[in-house]
Design a protein around this nucleic acid. Structure first.
Length: 470
RNA sequence: GGCGCGGUAGCCAAGUGGUAAGGCAGAGGUCUGCAAAACCUUUAUUCACCGGUUCGAAUCCGGUCCGCGCCUCCA
């Protein structure tokens, strides 16, 4: 079964066929670095990571570019408010972003181009649009894209300019535009920009929002590339405008597949600061959650479905991950033995799980189904272990498959055995001694003491196992 | 007004024509000195509601109710 994705452009599930044999070219809209990213932003980045990892799992090489928007209204406002240069100001949040994606086990992209490092490319692209007659220079010195001179406008979102309702967000200073729906390619310098501006053939100013993605995707991928992703709220106007300006400039089709992920809501409501349900990753870590738990929650639902994040869902994730950890530990600690081998039982289970897992991912990244494959495998193999029909080689084969799954999931922690402090270790030994003496009152007292110290003890055929209590 | 999404068990969440995955939580059982872990059984006669199509509908069509997103710099 081939890889299939829901393409926002056609609004259908389509088989994925890359343009070039060598690699899949992927452009993912990245952060605006004016603040710490919040959990909703990370939903998108985790989705993009899932896409990237799935492509690789399916055998493709991936060239991914993710932009860093380091010049726009918000970064300018933030830098000026902080009394810093734009670079100083955005550097902090760029660094925070990279720390955060590491915490969430997001695999790095090949390219992280920053807008401010690509002014020549953007200026060149704007010039091409002027030369082609689809852009115009307004009286205020800004350059706008004319959707009136680009009849194909609206292909992605099916929005007709005349149907657009004006909201309060329309800037009242944009009287210079020929049509309300025209969008800025280059914004003429304004007083509130402070020292933040660049020279261009049209005077001082700064690039419009959309142009960076067009310029940088062309540079790092190519004028036509395979997949473009982002949050659903970026479909309009951002992605629509990217398509217009890119295709008008190059005459070539821009991205072939558009994948958009739905929003994350918190406790069933849109995240907002006033509701007190606005979380950065750092906020959640401070509340004692781990990056891995948050990743698991973000991975859990289908990307095109809105995802409800709550502290309850994080607690559920913790319990589910505990099951995964326990299973991995059980496989690792399975004693070497020859008499328990039951060949031919485990291999079909592994094959079935692998097939189900792969097919789920290939089916537009159906993670819920993929996880179901994983959990079914765990039950199946646990049953074999209980019945003592699983030998060391089969345990190793199972671990190897889990390792394969984890190339996509990146939540399993297969090799990490918790480091047990020496005093905890000796308490556990004292308990074993008490048990040997059949002094169970003493043994249970030690067990309670261990729990108070934050350690659970489990008696297994291979001896007691210590694990951190959650 | 335009474009679009959704309502499946206590919670989360798959399933888009063939008789309801999976996770978490709960109940009972097996194992255990007791636990834990694991396993077994159990938890939706039913998928917001009303009609229709069909041998057959959570899935398709029409309508109703409810919730949500975007419509100029939100992932």
């Amino acid at each position: 079964m081939p890889l299939k994705f829901y393409n926002s452009l056609s609004r259908q599930i389509e088989p994925f066929v890359p343009l070039h044999q060598d690699a899949v070219r992927l452009y993912t809209c990245g952060p605006t670095v004016y603040n710490y990213a919040h959990i909703g932003n990370f939903r998108a980045y985790v989705f993009e990571d899932l896409l990237r990892r799935t492509l690789k799992y399916c055998g493709y090489r991936v060239i991914q570019a993710m932009n860093l928007t380091d010049v726009d209204d918000k970064t300018i406002r933030g830098a000026r408010a902080a009394g810093q240069s734009l670079d100083e100001f955005t550097k902090l949040f760029k660094r925070a972003f990279f720390e955060d994606i590491k915490t969430l086990r997001i695999e790095p992209a090949e390219h992280y181009p920053a807008a401010t490092e690509h002014l020549p490319e953007m200026i060149e692209l704007i010039q091409r649009l002027l030369d082609r007659g689809v852009a115009y220079r307004a009286d205020d010195g800004s350059v706008y894209f004319s959707i009136g001179r680009y009849p194909q406008y609206g292909r992605l979102t099916k929005i007709k300019p005349e149907d657009m309702r004006s909201t309060g967000r329309v800037r009242n200073d944009e009287y210079a535009k020929e049509a309300v729906a025209d969008f800025a390619l280059w914004k003429a310098y304004q007083e509130e920009d402070g020292a933040i501006c660049w020279d261009s053939p049209w005077g001082r100013g700064r690039p419009g929002w959309h142009i960076e993605c067009s310029a940088m995707s062309m540079k790092y991928l190519s004028p036509s590339f395979d997949i473009h992703t982002g949050g659903i709220d970026n479909m309009f106007p951002h992605h629509e405008d990217e398509i217009a300006q890119s295709e008008a400039a190059t005459g070539q089709p821009f991205a072939r597949y558009w994948l958009h992920c739905a929003h994350l809501v918190v406790d069933g409501q849109k995240m907002s600061k006033s509701l007190g349900n606005f979380f950065t990753l750092r906020d959640l870590l401070e509340q004692g959650l781990t990056g891995r738990e948050i990743r698991y929650v973000l991975l859990g639902g289908h990307y095109r479905q809105s995802l409800n994040f709550s502290l309850q869902s994080a607690r559920d994730a913790r319990a589910a991950l505990q099951r995964l950890d326990d299973f991995a530990a059980r496989l690792r600690q399975l004693p070497n033995s020859t008499e328990t081998d039951a060949p031919g039982i485990v291999q079909p289970l592994l094959e079935r799980a692998e097939t189900q897992f792969r097919q789920a991912l290939e089916d537009d990244l159906n993670m819920a189904e993929a996880l179901a494959a994983l959990f079914s495998l765990i039950r199946d193999v646990n049953r074999q272990i209980d019945q003592q029909t699983l030998a060391r080689p089969a345990a190793d084969a199972t671990l190897a498959l889990l390792r394969e799954f984890d190339r996509v999931l990146a939540v399993l922690d297969l090799d990490r055995e918790p480091a047990v402090p020496a005093e905890i270790e000796s308490l556990a030994e004292a308990r074993q001694e008490a048990r040997r003496q059949r002094d169970f009152a003493q043994a249970d007292a030690i067990r309670d003491r261990l729990l108070a110290e934050g350690w659970l003890i489990e008696d297994t055929p291979a001896g007691p196992r210590l694990k951190p209590a959650n």
